[in-house]
């Protein structure tokens, strides 16, 4: 880069660095950076939409039973 060019490092870079280092919760990252949860959540959502990180949710939307060939005879998936 030419002399005098400034490389901007924002909250986005800090969040990405911490996630890569193994911090996996918004609270952990917010505490580490001394910023609010909302700010970290915003950065996380953006990084996810850009494809840099993955956000895991343990919810029903991840229920793989929908693709299971036994779903019609199995009541487990209904839970």
């Amino acid at each position: 880069m030419a002399r005098g060019d400034v490389v901007v490092m924002s909250l986005l870079d800090d969040v990405l660095r911490l996630v890569r280092e193994g911090h996996h919760t918004v609270a952990e990252i917010a505490a580490e950076l001394g910023v609010s949860r909302e700010e970290v959540e915003g950065a996380v959502k953006l990084l996810e939409s850009m494809g840099y990180i993955e956000v895991r949710r343990l919810g029903k939307e991840d229920n793989p039973c929908s693709s299971c060939p036994l779903r019609k005879v199995c009541g487990f998936s209904k839970g």
Partner: peptide
């Protein structure tokens, strides 16, 4: 020259700009 994705460099700049 940046050594990282330019996409991320620009997103960072945008973030700093908003801040």
């Amino acid at each position: 020259r940046y050594g990282r994705s330019i996409d991320l460099v620009m997103a960072s700049s945008r973030y700093e700009f908003i801040d």
